[in-house]
Design a protein around this nucleic acid. Sequence first.
DNA 1: GGTTAGCACTCGACGATTGAGAGTGCTAAC
DNA 2: GTTAGCACTCTCAATCGTCGAGTGCTAACC
Lengths: 339, 339
Amino acid sequence: MASHEMDARKERILRAIIDDYIQTAMPVGSRTISRKYETSLSSATIRNEMSDLEELGYLAQPHVSAGRVPSMKAYRLYVDELLGGGALPQNPAAREYFSQRVRQVEDVITSAAQAISEFTRYTAVVMMPKQLELRVSTLQLVPMPRGAALLVIVTDTGAIRDTVIHVSENLDGDALYAISRMLTERLQGRTLQEVQEMLGAYSRQMGGDAQVLQGIAELAARMARQSATDTVTVGGSHNILNYPEYSDVEKARAFLSVLEEKEKLMALLSVPDEAFTVRIGPETGMPEMADCSVVTASYQVGRVHHGFVGVIGPTRMPYGSVLSALSAIGGALSEMLSE
Amino acid sequence: MASHEMDARKERILRAIIDDYIQTAMPVGSRTISRKYETSLSSATIRNEMSDLEELGYLAQPHVSAGRVPSMKAYRLYVDELLGGGALPQNPAAREYFSQRVRQVEDVITSAAQAISEFTRYTAVVMMPKQLELRVSTLQLVPMPRGAALLVIVTDTGAIRDTVIHVSENLDGDALYAISRMLTERLQGRTLQEVQEMLGAYSRQMGGDAQVLQGIAELAARMARQSATDTVTVGGSHNILNYPEYSDVEKARAFLSVLEEKEKLMALLSVPDEAFTVRIGPETGMPEMADCSVVTASYQVGRVHHGFVGVIGPTRMPYGSVLSALSAIGGALSEMLSE
DNA sequence: GGTTAGCACTCGACGATTGAGAGTGCTAAC
DNA sequence: GTTAGCACTCTCAATCGTCGAGTGCTAACC
């Protein structure tokens, strides 16, 4: 039958239902649509259309006498239109928001997660995939008071890591610099693994200052460990409490505990390498998250894909504005990390 | 009347009630005490004693036919005994737990908050009071790839802060070191404020490398700003959801939003300079937190008071183990920060 | 044919009612 | 001083009826 195919009016009505539901979190009735959105049509007409939309799988009724609720399929259509249209509403404010100076990659990541969560009022995740084969670019000892020194390792990718180590009190700034130079000369270009291996050889040459070498070895090991695993940061996890879907504390806790298990979180974020992805409910592939959506945007460093920024929230989510916020922050992230 | 004064048995019973209530969060009935704690007494006897304890203000009844609930006064007695007795159960595990290497003061603070919250399963706060008059100890530029450099400022207290700045591409490591030396020589011992002021004077001497000076000025300003305000870190804020007191989402949200307002949090933590404080309910002086307790322990750097570690949770809290955890972490913190 | 008014029907939300259970206070006996 | 017994109170959970929102269907209308 003709009435069982989508036409322009059905789409308008469906969109109105989705919009209303996203706002109110309450099943949408025919009268609501008739009054608020399609004022030229009566509720009875809307009812007929809704009935068709239900048969087409776009709507569902929680009970026979409640309004309609959009199905996953409806959200999918809505989102695909959004993504296909290419016309993401631009969101300069989000970008503005996230423009503080930050010191190194990890800080950028954390602060991006903060920015996204504060801006969207949802839970934000930022993921940075592992970087193997990090190579040392500079290694330097900065003098500190009382026989301490700050050991700084900079890699070719610009990652910085530092730690405080003890050194002999009689090493002044120049001596530390001489050591730094020597070490940099020999270790530059080596991978972190190699650095660890080579330290044995140098320990003889350094004589009593084995402490320094041990400090370096430890830091290199820690850096290697950190860079060899994907990093994922969560921001604004308790934003979830703002949404009636999680007014049940048990649900909220279940949600939060998933966020605490890094592995699950990784799994949730391991998405195809596309500019944007929206996974709705079961599409996340995780039963615990069956009534959540995960929206991600990828960001790059240089021209190579790098990581994801994302938002996790109820399926009822203003995908448009979330996507544009992610796009803005993702863009800012790309810029900051590319230089 | 004699029966209206505390005697040893009343104290035992009161303690049993508090312990049971801390465990179960349910009003405690006379039969429970008679069965689980004072098996030689019948429930009727316990009832009489409870009635006295209520008259003395240590117990309250939510309704006429519920069990009893300890009052603030009861917790106070319980805690004072704990504090007065001096015999805090030692808790080496907590200390063990918090022993990772961390790079600088802020990291220690954050990781202490993490450790406390994971260990006690409550929300933890760590506060570090402002440090005025920070003086520069070393200032160093570490070369990075592609015309960048990492600017590191170390203060006399061992605080480290760094930022990435742009420098002219033709400055190699030695040139950067020469600049670092020169800057350190002139700025060492100056306060951060002075550093900012003096930068104008040097900008002429440095010629084209005003970028460097600007970077330093910015970093010094940021450092000064950060060190001039009390810092407070929260860990494990959503542990609160584990407790039935907060099974109402509204309450949980109210609680969490207080934690987000730094000023309120500060107010909550501004306690007298004592080794331990326990403030119960209204004693916190904050109406929103009327049914919470705040437990703090102070830690020191050297011999001078420095800051607080604390736990915020429902009044029904195992004060003994919380205090010992705080004491352990506070001690570890003192050690780490004193060297 | 599409649109609309009208109406019967369904089902959840909400308030009142009720019974069961937990716990108390009191009294009288030990 | 302690305890058994009992009447009493009050919460909690379940049950029941009412109300209202919203639907589907039919018949009339344009």
